[in-house]
Each structure stands twice: as C-alpha cells, then as structure tokens.
C-alpha cells in the first residue's frame, strides 16, 4: 500500500498496518509523539487499534524539548 507519511509518499509491503506497526517499521522509537491519521488525532493508547490503509495521510510529530 501507498500512504503519505509526513507529507512524503511511502510504500509498505502490507494491506493494513496499525499505527504502532508503522512506528516500529519506521523505527520511530521516540517516546513522545503526536500521531494523526487523515487529520484525526490518535493518542498513545489508541495506536494499537488504529488502522492505516492505502491512500491514508499519516502524520507523526516528535515532541522535541526546549522553549
């Protein structure tokens, strides 16, 4: 399937992924992140259930300290 991840096209060898699958595949191990699928926020505890499909627009935003 082909998805948009942080405004870039990415191809995955699967028909469906959970957000956690995606984070693992991409090696996003950072502990504080915001995850959105098609504009909808999914909190940490929802990432195991939230499914990503072909054509979806996914945003993974890392919470970088400092201010």
């Amino acid at each position: 399937m082909k998805i948009t991840l942080n405004n870039r096209e990415e191809i995955f060898d699967a028909d469906e992924l959970t957000i956690n699958d995606l984070l693992k595949t991409k090696n996003y191990t950072f502990h504080l992140m915001i995850t959105k699928v098609n504009g909808k926020l999914f909190r940490k505890e929802e990432r195991d259930k939230a499914k990503i499909h072909d054509g979806d627009n996914v945003a993974v935003i890392h919470m970088i300290s400092g201010g």
């Binding site: 504080l32 970088i64 201010g67």
Partner: peptide
C-alpha cells in the same frame, strides 16, 4: 510555548 516535551504533547 512550553519547554518540556511531555507538556508539549
């Protein structure tokens, strides 16, 4: 405009 990452989240 927080400094801590957990507060930003």
């Amino acid at each position: 405009a927080f400094d801590r990452a957990d507060m930003k989240q």
